[in-house]
Structures are given as C-alpha cells and as structure tokens.
Design a protein around this nucleic acid. Structure first.
Lengths: 205, 205
DNA sequence: GGCAATACGATACTGCTCGTATCCTACTCG
DNA sequence: CGAGTAGGATACGAGCAGTATCGTATTGCC
C-alpha cells in the first residue's frame, strides 16, 4: 500500500511529491487549517508547513490566499445528497429544509464560507466560483417541495420560480449578515416560514 | 531651495487641538479616507497624517481600525430624512423605496458599509453598533407605506409586521452579498416587488 | 542508461500595516 | 505661575502576503 493519500505527514519523505498528488496534499492541508483556525487566521506559511512544502509551490497553483481557500473549501464539502424532506405537507417540509440550512450556515463550515465570501467581494472571479457551486445548489430541494405541494393542490404552479423558492434561504442568510456570528434561533426560522414563505406561496394561487 | 525646514509657509497650527475638536478632526479625516480609498485600504497612518496628528492620539480614543471606521462612517451619513414616497398605490411606493435602497447600497457609502460589516463579524460590539444605527432605520418607511395601503384597503393589517415590512430590503441586501459589488439591476428590483413583496402583503388579507 | 529540463523545497527578503513605546512639549487648570 | 495632562513626532516589534534565489530530486526523452 503506497501512501498515495496526502493525508498524514510523511515523516520520512522518501519521495518528493509532484503534480496532482502534491496538489491534493496542499488542499488537504489548507482545509485542515481552515477547520482549525478559520479563514481570517489562515496563513500561507502555515499551509505550506503543514503540507510539507513551500509557499512557492502553492503560489504556482493559486494566485493568492483567497483562491486557495476557496479551492480548499470546496474539497471539504460533504457532497452527500441528503434527500429532500417529504412529510406530506408543505409547512413541515419547509421547516425541515430551513432548519437544515440553518445548521449548515451556523456550522464551522458555514462560518468559514461567510468569512471567505465577505473577503472576496472585490474579486468577481472568486465570487462567481463560489456562487455557482454553493449558493445555487440550495434552490433545487425547495423547488421539489413546492412541486409536490402543487401536485397536492396546496399552492398554484405560479409559485414555482427560483426567486420564490429561494426566498426563505435568502432571508436566513440575511439574518447572518446582519446579526453576526451567532446561530439564528428557532423562533426566527418559524417566523420566516409562517410569516413569509407560506403566505407567499399560497398567494400564488 | 525649500524653506519648509522646521516651519513651512506658516499655515502651521497656531494651536494644539484637544478634546472634542481634535476628535472631530480625526473622524473627519477618517471619513475622507474612507471615501477616497475605502475601508480595506484605510490605514491608521494615513488617517493620522491627514488629521495632522499621530496614531497614538487615535488609539487613545478607539481600540482599533474597525472601531474608528464605524465611528467615522456614522459621521458621513446623510441624515436628511427623505420623506416617504406617497404615490397613492402600494406598488409605486414600494418600487420607489426599493430603488432608493438600491441606490444607497450601490453608492460608495454602501460599498464601504458592506466592507466594514464583513470585516467585523467576529466583533459583536461593533456589529451591534452598526445594526441599530443603520439597518433598522430602513424599516420605518416601509411600515408607513404599508399603513397607508391598509388604510386604502389594499392590504390587511396583518401585513404590518417588521418582518414583512423589511422583506424587500432584506432580499435586496442578500443580492449584494451573493453577487458581489455590482449594482443590482432594475429587473431584479421589479422581480422582488412583483413576485415577492406584493403577493406577500396581499396574502395577508 | 544517461542527460537535460523541470518542478520541488528551503530560505531569505521586500513591503506593508497594525498596534505599542518613548520622549518631548504645548496647553490647561488649579 | 507651576505641575500635571494630553498632543505630537518618531521609532519599533511583530505578523504576513507575495516574490526571488538557488540547490536538488525526479522525470521524461533520447
């Protein structure tokens, strides 16, 4: 068994890594640093040291700290699909989805994402990179539960737009932007669903 | 030949400022720096130089760059009340308010605000300081136009909650968080009003 | 199998900026 | 009018991004 996983530190360093293997080792190291100290405290020196390489090699692959962090963050995502809730009524499904989003956003990974997002506002390339990858994915399950609700006659088909579908998550995200780091309380989740989401989709009928 | 050794052309400070006057001068200098180079490029050295003082004096009043910037930002706000639009129908008023918010958010001041907000997420004191001052103020006019619409019978009184009132601005703010710096296009404004805000408030009836 | 090109890794260095320390001096207040 | 306080100039330590150099392991080509 060769230690082709860049995982643990190769104390002996028999061989000098290159190409893809090295790249994986760097991303792994960067992801670990992100998890341990967060984006704002992540330093290129630390990543290089942890990966057992030098900053030079990193800068040959990513133009700056932000780009490396974005790439590393994408590595550390769960990627398990997590089936869409289907309780039989729209309110339960919406609450489940929104609570799930809240868990994601308040998790360490969520904190990291928000740190990165805020630091790259003036780097359109990076923003687009994260946008398509991370933000949009959340809309699909909402469209699914709305489609089921439509089939049940709970709401009209006019509610099946991305804007309507994403409204709850958008408002939740806004809570984090406005209030800072703390986790959004359950009461706010319920408020968003009962005062905004449900009245809105039922209006489209 | 420079006669500026020691004493220059005698616009030299006759008197050494102190207390409130000095504080105002520093905030003024900081506000100018914010306007010229933005928050992320604002340096304490530059502020001190522009104010004709030294960093020492600044740090005696504010604990760090973020706190100074927040204080300076509050100085540079317009504070002109800007009367609430009253066109006679809710849609026009909502569009007017939302366009106004869009102008504010896309202005240099808006960019600065977003830069600051993103940099102080781990500084709860600072977040609260900005929150109460800047974020909440936007809700009042929305409650006003909703109240007028209620009086006209356009919507029911259940729509008169802060959450409903702020939903359009919240969604707009979210656009900036997600999409980065560019100004949100008019089509998005209309979408928010016609797909979200109006159906929502009419549902409360 | 040998050799040149290339990528790695170590180290050092520049440049920038925050925040602090020192020391002198102008001004205020008793 | 003298002591204490606050302002101002300057220097400094520390941390970190990003760049430059240089020797060397590795690889791919012949």
């Amino acid at each position: 068994m060769a230690e082709d996983q860049g995982g643990d530190v190769n104390q002996g360093k028999k061989t000098r890594r290159r190409g893809a293997a090295l790249e994986r080792a760097i991303l792994q190291a960067a992801a670990e640093e992100l998890a341990e100290v967060g984006y704002s405290n992540l330093t290129m020196d630390a990543v290089a040291a942890r990966a057992g390489t030098s900053k030079n090699v990193i800068y040959r692959r990513w133009p700056n700290r932000a780009a490396l962090s974005v790439a590393a963050y994408r590595q550390m995502l769960p990627t398990d699909p997590k089936d869409t809730p289907n309780a039989g009524d729209l309110r339960s499904d919406a609450l489940a989805l929104l609570n799930r989003a809240n868990d994601r956003l308040s998790s360490p990974a969520g904190k990291i994402l928000r740190e990165i997002l805020s630091d790259i506002q003036n780097d359109p390339d990076r923003v687009r990179e994260i946008h398509g990858q991370l933000v949009n994915v959340g809309v699909a399950p909402w469209l699914t539960i709305l489609a089921r609700a439509t089939a049940r006659g709970e709401v009209g088909p006019e509610a099946l737009t991305p804007r309507v579908a994403s409204v709850a998550v958008d408002l939740l995200r806004n809570e984090y932007v406005i209030n800072g780091v703390t986790k959004v309380p359950a009461s706010t989740i319920i408020e968003i669903v009962d005062q905004i989401f449900l009245p809105l989709v039922r209006a489209h009928r």
